[in-house]
Design a protein around this nucleic acid. Structure first.
Lengths: 150, 150
DNA sequence: CGGGATCCAGAACGATACTG
DNA sequence: CAGTATCGTTCTGGATCCCG
Protein backbone atom coordinates (compact mmCIF):
# COMPACT_ATOMS: atom_id res chain seq x y z
CA UNK A 1 0.00 0.00 0.00
CA UNK A 2 1.82 3.15 -1.22
CA UNK A 3 -0.14 5.70 0.72
CA UNK A 4 -3.54 7.26 0.90
CA UNK A 5 -4.14 10.53 -0.97
CA UNK A 6 -3.59 13.77 0.97
CA UNK A 7 -7.18 13.84 2.26
CA UNK A 8 -9.94 13.71 -0.36
CA UNK A 9 -12.24 16.21 1.41
CA UNK A 10 -15.10 13.79 1.92
CA UNK A 11 -18.57 14.81 0.79
CA UNK A 12 -21.17 15.79 3.35
CA UNK A 13 -18.58 17.17 5.73
CA UNK A 14 -18.33 20.89 6.27
CA UNK A 15 -15.30 20.67 8.51
CA UNK A 16 -13.22 22.79 6.21
CA UNK A 17 -15.67 25.65 6.09
CA UNK A 18 -16.48 25.20 9.74
CA UNK A 19 -13.01 25.52 11.16
CA UNK A 20 -11.74 27.84 8.42
CA UNK A 21 -14.38 30.33 9.54
CA UNK A 22 -12.05 31.10 12.42
CA UNK A 23 -13.88 30.04 15.57
CA UNK A 24 -13.76 31.91 18.81
CA UNK A 25 -11.88 29.61 21.20
CA UNK A 26 -14.16 30.39 24.13
CA UNK A 27 -17.67 30.20 22.74
CA UNK A 28 -17.08 27.35 20.35
CA UNK A 29 -20.11 25.02 20.45
CA UNK A 30 -17.95 21.95 20.08
CA UNK A 31 -15.90 22.90 23.11
CA UNK A 32 -18.99 23.51 25.14
CA UNK A 33 -20.68 20.30 24.18
CA UNK A 34 -17.57 18.21 24.43
CA UNK A 35 -16.76 19.59 27.84
CA UNK A 36 -20.10 18.24 28.93
CA UNK A 37 -20.32 14.79 27.38
CA UNK A 38 -16.56 14.41 27.26
CA UNK A 39 -16.20 13.84 30.98
CA UNK A 40 -15.93 10.44 32.52
CA UNK A 41 -19.60 9.63 33.05
CA UNK A 42 -21.97 11.83 31.04
CA UNK A 43 -22.02 9.73 27.93
CA UNK A 44 -22.51 6.54 29.88
CA UNK A 45 -25.25 8.26 31.84
CA UNK A 46 -27.08 9.24 28.69
CA UNK A 47 -26.96 5.69 27.39
CA UNK A 48 -28.19 4.45 30.75
CA UNK A 49 -31.19 6.75 30.50
CA UNK A 50 -31.78 6.07 26.83
CA UNK A 51 -34.06 3.09 27.18
CA UNK A 52 -36.13 4.33 30.09
CA UNK A 53 -36.08 6.63 33.07
CA UNK A 54 -34.21 5.49 36.17
CA UNK A 55 -34.16 6.08 39.86
CA UNK A 56 -31.03 7.32 41.54
CA UNK A 57 -30.27 3.94 43.08
CA UNK A 58 -30.89 2.14 39.80
CA UNK A 59 -28.13 4.07 38.16
CA UNK A 60 -25.67 2.57 40.60
CA UNK A 61 -26.49 -0.91 39.42
CA UNK A 62 -26.18 0.14 35.79
CA UNK A 63 -22.91 1.99 36.35
CA UNK A 64 -20.98 -0.29 38.67
CA UNK A 65 -17.92 1.81 39.42
CA UNK A 66 -19.26 5.33 39.72
CA UNK A 67 -19.09 7.13 43.03
CA UNK A 68 -22.15 8.70 44.59
CA UNK A 69 -20.55 12.08 44.28
CA UNK A 70 -19.99 11.81 40.56
CA UNK A 71 -23.41 10.31 40.01
CA UNK A 72 -25.00 13.35 41.61
CA UNK A 73 -22.72 15.83 39.92
CA UNK A 74 -23.09 14.33 36.46
CA UNK A 75 -26.86 14.32 36.79
CA UNK A 76 -26.82 17.93 37.95
CA UNK A 77 -24.68 19.02 35.04
CA UNK A 78 -26.86 17.20 32.53
CA UNK A 79 -29.93 18.70 34.16
CA UNK A 80 -28.41 22.14 33.97
CA UNK A 81 -27.82 21.74 30.27
CA UNK A 82 -31.39 20.61 29.79
CA UNK A 83 -30.53 17.08 28.73
CA UNK A 84 -32.19 15.30 31.64
CA UNK A 85 -35.12 16.21 33.85
CA UNK A 86 -35.46 15.45 37.53
CA UNK A 87 -38.73 14.28 39.02
CA UNK A 88 -39.24 14.08 42.78
CA UNK A 89 -41.85 11.84 44.39
CA UNK A 90 -42.47 12.93 48.00
CA UNK A 91 -43.06 9.37 49.24
CA UNK A 92 -42.04 7.88 52.58
CA UNK A 93 -38.41 7.51 51.64
CA UNK A 94 -38.22 10.14 48.93
CA UNK A 95 -37.83 8.83 45.41
CA UNK A 96 -36.16 10.70 42.59
CA UNK A 97 -36.40 9.74 38.99
CA UNK A 98 -34.33 10.96 36.07
CA UNK A 99 -35.43 11.07 32.46
CA UNK A 100 -34.04 12.24 29.19
CA UNK A 101 -35.59 15.48 28.01
CA UNK A 102 -36.50 15.84 24.33
CA UNK A 103 -33.17 17.59 23.92
CA UNK A 104 -31.47 14.68 25.62
CA UNK A 105 -33.32 12.26 23.35
CA UNK A 106 -32.11 14.17 20.34
CA UNK A 107 -28.47 13.71 21.25
CA UNK A 108 -28.85 9.94 21.26
CA UNK A 109 -28.75 9.83 17.50
CA UNK A 110 -25.30 11.40 16.96
CA UNK A 111 -24.17 9.62 20.09
CA UNK A 112 -25.22 6.22 18.81
CA UNK A 113 -23.27 6.90 15.65
CA UNK A 114 -20.17 7.48 17.73
CA UNK A 115 -20.81 4.48 19.94
CA UNK A 116 -21.28 2.34 16.87
CA UNK A 117 -18.00 3.55 15.45
CA UNK A 118 -16.27 2.83 18.72
CA UNK A 119 -17.63 -0.69 18.82
CA UNK A 120 -16.71 -1.44 15.23
CA UNK A 121 -13.22 0.03 15.25
CA UNK A 122 -12.06 -0.71 18.75
CA UNK A 123 -10.08 -3.74 17.57
CA UNK A 124 -8.32 -1.55 15.03
CA UNK A 125 -7.38 0.92 17.73
CA UNK A 126 -6.07 -1.78 20.03
CA UNK A 127 -4.01 -3.19 17.18
CA UNK A 128 -2.63 0.25 16.35
CA UNK A 129 -1.67 0.78 19.97
CA UNK A 130 0.11 -2.54 20.12
CA UNK A 131 2.03 -1.73 16.94
CA UNK A 132 2.97 1.73 18.16
CA UNK A 133 4.13 0.54 21.57
CA UNK A 134 6.13 -2.27 20.03
CA UNK A 135 7.84 0.19 17.71
CA UNK A 136 8.85 2.34 20.66
CA UNK A 137 10.46 -0.41 22.69
CA UNK A 138 12.07 -1.99 19.68
CA UNK A 139 13.92 -0.12 16.93
CA UNK A 140 12.21 3.11 15.80
CA UNK A 141 11.07 1.62 12.47
CA UNK A 142 12.09 4.32 9.99
CA UNK A 143 10.19 2.68 7.13
CA UNK A 144 7.75 5.55 6.73
CA UNK A 145 10.23 8.37 6.27
CA UNK A 146 9.40 10.32 3.13
CA UNK A 147 11.97 10.97 0.43
CA UNK A 148 10.94 14.40 -0.79
CA UNK A 149 9.13 17.41 0.55
CA UNK A 150 5.75 18.63 -0.64
CA UNK B 1 -49.72 7.57 33.05
CA UNK B 2 -50.49 11.16 32.10
CA UNK B 3 -47.01 12.42 31.33
CA UNK B 4 -44.77 11.78 28.38
CA UNK B 5 -44.13 8.06 27.82
CA UNK B 6 -41.22 6.49 29.73
CA UNK B 7 -38.89 6.69 26.72
CA UNK B 8 -40.22 5.22 23.47
CA UNK B 9 -37.08 3.16 22.75
CA UNK B 10 -36.30 4.95 19.54
CA UNK B 11 -35.73 2.89 16.42
CA UNK B 12 -32.19 2.39 15.21
CA UNK B 13 -30.77 2.63 18.71
CA UNK B 14 -29.45 -0.47 20.41
CA UNK B 15 -28.62 1.31 23.63
CA UNK B 16 -30.92 -0.88 25.66
CA UNK B 17 -29.42 -4.13 24.47
CA UNK B 18 -25.98 -2.64 24.53
CA UNK B 19 -25.85 -1.51 28.10
CA UNK B 20 -28.17 -4.23 29.39
CA UNK B 21 -25.61 -6.75 28.21
CA UNK B 22 -23.63 -5.80 31.31
CA UNK B 23 -20.44 -4.21 30.07
CA UNK B 24 -17.07 -4.68 31.65
CA UNK B 25 -16.14 -1.27 33.07
CA UNK B 26 -12.51 -1.56 32.05
CA UNK B 27 -12.56 -2.80 28.45
CA UNK B 28 -15.63 -0.92 27.39
CA UNK B 29 -15.06 0.43 23.86
CA UNK B 30 -16.94 3.61 24.61
CA UNK B 31 -14.70 4.39 27.54
CA UNK B 32 -11.61 3.76 25.49
CA UNK B 33 -12.71 5.86 22.58
CA UNK B 34 -14.11 8.63 24.71
CA UNK B 35 -10.95 8.81 26.77
CA UNK B 36 -9.16 9.56 23.53
CA UNK B 37 -11.37 12.05 21.74
CA UNK B 38 -12.89 13.32 24.96
CA UNK B 39 -9.83 15.28 26.00
CA UNK B 40 -9.43 18.96 25.39
CA UNK B 41 -7.87 18.92 21.94
CA UNK B 42 -8.27 15.62 20.10
CA UNK B 43 -11.62 16.36 18.53
CA UNK B 44 -10.51 19.80 17.42
CA UNK B 45 -7.35 18.26 16.06
CA UNK B 46 -9.29 15.76 13.98
CA UNK B 47 -11.42 18.51 12.50
CA UNK B 48 -8.29 20.52 11.78
CA UNK B 49 -6.88 17.58 9.82
CA UNK B 50 -10.16 16.71 8.15
CA UNK B 51 -9.85 18.92 5.09
CA UNK B 52 -6.19 18.33 4.39
CA UNK B 53 -2.90 17.34 5.98
CA UNK B 54 -1.06 19.95 8.01
CA UNK B 55 2.41 20.78 9.18
CA UNK B 56 3.18 21.08 12.86
CA UNK B 57 3.39 24.85 12.72
CA UNK B 58 0.20 25.13 10.72
CA UNK B 59 -1.74 23.52 13.51
CA UNK B 60 -0.79 26.40 15.77
CA UNK B 61 -2.48 28.86 13.51
CA UNK B 62 -5.58 26.69 13.28
CA UNK B 63 -5.74 26.08 17.03
CA UNK B 64 -4.92 29.47 18.51
CA UNK B 65 -4.77 28.66 22.20
CA UNK B 66 -3.10 25.26 22.31
CA UNK B 67 0.30 24.91 23.91
CA UNK B 68 3.18 23.31 22.08
CA UNK B 69 3.27 20.59 24.66
CA UNK B 70 -0.37 19.61 24.18
CA UNK B 71 -0.06 19.84 20.43
CA UNK B 72 2.72 17.29 20.48
CA UNK B 73 1.06 15.05 23.01
CA UNK B 74 -2.32 15.06 21.30
CA UNK B 75 -0.71 14.20 17.98
CA UNK B 76 1.26 11.38 19.58
CA UNK B 77 -1.82 9.92 21.19
CA UNK B 78 -3.80 10.09 17.97
CA UNK B 79 -0.90 8.53 16.12
CA UNK B 80 -0.67 5.76 18.69
CA UNK B 81 -4.32 4.94 18.17
CA UNK B 82 -3.82 4.86 14.42
CA UNK B 83 -6.00 7.88 13.69
CA UNK B 84 -3.25 10.08 12.28
CA UNK B 85 -0.03 9.30 10.49
CA UNK B 86 3.22 11.20 10.80
CA UNK B 87 5.40 11.94 7.78
CA UNK B 88 8.91 13.32 8.18
CA UNK B 89 10.69 15.19 5.40
CA UNK B 90 14.44 15.33 6.15
CA UNK B 91 14.89 18.80 4.66
CA UNK B 92 17.19 21.56 5.89
CA UNK B 93 14.96 22.57 8.74
CA UNK B 94 13.08 19.30 9.19
CA UNK B 95 9.45 19.33 8.19
CA UNK B 96 6.79 17.09 9.64
CA UNK B 97 3.37 16.60 8.22
CA UNK B 98 0.34 15.01 9.83
CA UNK B 99 -2.50 13.32 8.01
CA UNK B 100 -5.62 11.45 8.91
CA UNK B 101 -5.30 7.73 8.40
CA UNK B 102 -8.18 5.84 6.80
CA UNK B 103 -9.27 4.99 10.32
CA UNK B 104 -9.09 8.65 11.22
CA UNK B 105 -11.12 9.54 8.15
CA UNK B 106 -13.76 7.04 9.16
CA UNK B 107 -14.32 8.73 12.50
CA UNK B 108 -15.18 12.00 10.81
CA UNK B 109 -18.61 10.78 9.93
CA UNK B 110 -19.90 10.08 13.46
CA UNK B 111 -17.94 13.09 14.61
CA UNK B 112 -19.59 15.41 12.13
CA UNK B 113 -22.95 14.17 13.35
CA UNK B 114 -22.02 15.20 16.86
CA UNK B 115 -20.58 18.52 15.75
CA UNK B 116 -23.73 19.22 13.80
CA UNK B 117 -25.85 18.47 16.83
CA UNK B 118 -23.69 20.74 18.95
CA UNK B 119 -24.04 23.58 16.48
CA UNK B 120 -27.79 23.20 16.14
CA UNK B 121 -28.61 22.78 19.81
CA UNK B 122 -26.05 25.01 21.45
CA UNK B 123 -28.59 27.83 21.85
CA UNK B 124 -30.95 25.40 23.58
CA UNK B 125 -28.20 24.40 25.98
CA UNK B 126 -27.29 27.98 26.76
CA UNK B 127 -30.94 28.76 27.40
CA UNK B 128 -31.27 25.74 29.66
CA UNK B 129 -28.20 26.81 31.61
CA UNK B 130 -29.54 30.31 32.05
CA UNK B 131 -32.86 28.95 33.29
CA UNK B 132 -31.19 26.52 35.67
CA UNK B 133 -28.84 29.11 37.11
CA UNK B 134 -31.62 31.61 37.52
CA UNK B 135 -33.68 29.03 39.38
CA UNK B 136 -30.80 28.41 41.78
CA UNK B 137 -30.21 32.03 42.74
CA UNK B 138 -33.92 32.79 42.88
CA UNK B 139 -36.55 30.60 44.50
CA UNK B 140 -36.09 26.86 43.85
CA UNK B 141 -39.09 26.66 41.50
CA UNK B 142 -40.99 23.60 42.82
CA UNK B 143 -43.35 23.55 39.87
CA UNK B 144 -42.16 20.22 38.60
CA UNK B 145 -42.72 18.14 41.73
CA UNK B 146 -44.73 15.05 40.89
CA UNK B 147 -47.86 14.10 42.78
CA UNK B 148 -47.66 10.31 42.77
CA UNK B 149 -44.96 7.68 42.69
CA UNK B 150 -44.43 5.18 39.89
C1' DC C 1 -33.32 6.86 49.73
C1' DG C 2 -31.11 10.67 47.74
C1' DG C 3 -28.35 13.59 48.35
C1' DG C 4 -24.63 17.75 50.20
C1' DA C 5 -19.93 19.06 52.22
C1' DT C 6 -15.26 18.30 52.79
C1' DC C 7 -10.74 16.53 51.92
C1' DC C 8 -7.31 14.73 49.10
C1' DA C 9 -4.72 12.06 45.28
C1' DG C 10 -3.70 11.97 40.75
C1' DA C 11 -4.34 13.38 36.09
C1' DA C 12 -4.61 16.98 32.77
C1' DC C 13 -2.93 21.08 31.25
C1' DG C 14 -0.02 25.57 30.52
C1' DA C 15 4.42 28.18 30.64
C1' DT C 16 8.98 28.19 30.04
C1' DA C 17 13.50 26.75 28.74
C1' DC C 18 16.44 23.88 26.07
C1' DT C 19 17.75 20.79 21.70
C1' DG C 20 18.89 18.90 16.92
C1' DC D 1 10.99 23.85 12.39
C1' DA D 2 9.63 20.50 15.38
C1' DG D 3 10.04 18.94 19.04
C1' DT D 4 11.70 17.30 24.52
C1' DA D 5 12.14 18.20 29.58
C1' DT D 6 10.77 20.14 33.73
C1' DC D 7 7.95 22.60 36.72
C1' DG D 8 3.79 24.37 38.74
C1' DT D 9 -1.10 24.90 38.54
C1' DT D 10 -5.73 23.65 37.85
C1' DC D 11 -9.18 20.36 37.40
C1' DT D 12 -11.31 15.87 38.05
C1' DG D 13 -12.86 12.41 40.50
C1' DG D 14 -12.88 9.04 44.62
C1' DA D 15 -13.50 8.44 49.80
C1' DT D 16 -15.67 9.63 53.69
C1' DC D 17 -18.92 11.68 56.76
C1' DC D 18 -23.27 14.00 57.53
C1' DC D 19 -28.25 15.22 56.68
C1' DG D 20 -33.50 15.19 55.75
Amino acid sequence: MPEHPPAPARPGLDFAAWQAAGFDPARCPVRNVLDRIGDKWSMLMLTALAARHRRFGELFRVMPDISKRMLTQTLRDLERDGLVTRHVFPTKPPGVEYRLSPLGQSVLEPLSALVGWADRHFPDIEAARARFDAAQTGQPDTSLIEQDAA
